[in-house]
């Protein structure tokens, strides 16, 4: 991507963000709400600098939980998609269970997981995995089943067995769908880890949030929110990048990068 292309791509979002922050600052200057109700962006910046020494350990813990949880969710989601596609009975048995698993609010499930798995990182990782496997499984399944039937007929006419059809046609064809699901999952992974930490934890952005809330340091709550948003965006972008690397045959990907 060229510098000019990058500028054109990011300029609108940057302008919107700067505008919103400016309006916020202006509102605080004019209406003077109490600092524990709504701190100004400037005040949040100062709080960021003040809490800087505390942050690395919290951020590292949350990122580790999010990444491990996302990795487990991705593998489980893709694996389930393959099973669901290959075994019709599995689809009928598993689909209702999978959907049901998504209807239990995490805020209900997280304390139970703590009860079962302790206050360490494992219940957080499980929460992230539970949140992230679902979009991956749904998207990958539609990728695997949505393959052009003529493509399947072609390799079958060459004498391919079901396993070979899966390997040569279905799996590669489902790669873009897998990454589409993974992108959605990536956007939720960090927030999922934070929610789980909120229940009980020793380290993590959720802990930082909870402590700030208890001491009415609203500016620090905003610091945590900004960090969570930035981490989520970074993870989202990283998955997008991985998707491109994983599908080098998409010439259009490269064409997009030209100005």
């Amino acid at each position: 991507m060229t510098a000019v292309g990058g500028l054109r791509r990011w300029a609108p979002a940057t302008v919107l963000l700067v505008g919103l922050v400016g309006a916020w600052e202006l509102y605080v200057i004019l209406r003077r709400p109490a600092a524990y109700v709504l701190p100004s962006p400037g005040r949040i910046g100062e709080a960021f600098v003040e809490s800087w020494p505390l942050l690395p350990t919290h951020v590292a813990t949350t990122v580790a939980e999010a990444l491990v949880g996302l990795a487990i969710g991705a593998v489980a989601g893709a694996g389930l998609a393959v099973v669901i596609t290959a075994v019709p009975l599995a689809r009928r048995v598993l689909e209702p269970v999978l959907v049901a698993s998504q209807t239990v609010p995490m805020i209900v499930l997280a304390p139970l997981l703590v009860l079962w798995f302790g206050i360490g990182m494992s219940p957080k990782i499980i929460v992230v995995a539970l949140i992230t496997f679902f979009p991956v499984a749904v998207s990958t399944t539609s990728g695997l089943t949505g393959v052009d039937p003529d493509l399947v007929d072609l390799v079958r006419s060459m004498g391919a067995r079901p396993g070979q059809v899966l390997r040569t046609v279905r799996l590669p064809a489902a790669v873009p769908a897998f990454f589409a699901g993974l992108r959605i999952a990536a956007a939720y992974a960090v927030a999922g880890a934070v929610v789980a930490e909120y229940v009980v934890a020793q380290r993590g952005l959720g802990v930082f949030l909870e402590r700030s809330r208890r001491s009415f340091q609203v500016d620090r709550i905003f610091v945590a929110v900004v960090i969570i948003a930035a981490l989520s965006a970074a993870l989202f972008a990283a998955v997008g990048l991985a998707a491109r690397v994983a599908s080098p045959w998409h010439v259009t990907n490269k064409a997009e990068e030209a100005p």
Binding site: D150, L154, Q164, T168, P172, A173, S247
Partner: peptide
């Protein structure tokens, strides 16, 4: 059998598309 559409696998280069059948055998 050559189907009506060319049905090349987009993720395989020319040579690997051509040798698909041999690989399956």
């Amino acid at each position: 059998y050559m189907p009506q559409k060319d049905l090349l696998l987009p993720w395989r280069r020319t040579l690997d598309n051509a040798t698909l059948g041999a690989e399956l055998h």
